[in-house]
Amino acid sequence: MKKSSFVILLFIITIVSLSVAQGVVSNKLSTKGVILHEIEKKVYDYKTQNSILSEEILYNSSLTNLASKAAELGFGKLREQFVLNSGSSLAVKP
């Protein structure tokens, strides 16, 4: 009798403690969804900002924009080119 009572008591204690543990964990977990949602929103916002910055970089580094800015700043086309075919002499006879 004593042995069976002991086993029953053990089961009751196990069930109660597991129930309490489940309650505690579920309670802690219940608000994590909101935190996850906030994190996801932050990621989404950062991705959006990255996209906007990327757009600005591409526009500013485009040849179309550079050519227009270069013209405004007074850059002109290189008129003369020269080619070095052979090594230059150390000294030239007059």
Partner: peptide
């Protein structure tokens, strides 16, 4: 509502 559109950095190149 966010959407993505095509963007052409080099205009109509």
């Amino acid at each position: 509502e966010q959407q993505f559109n095509r963007f052409y950095p080099e205009a109509s190149m």
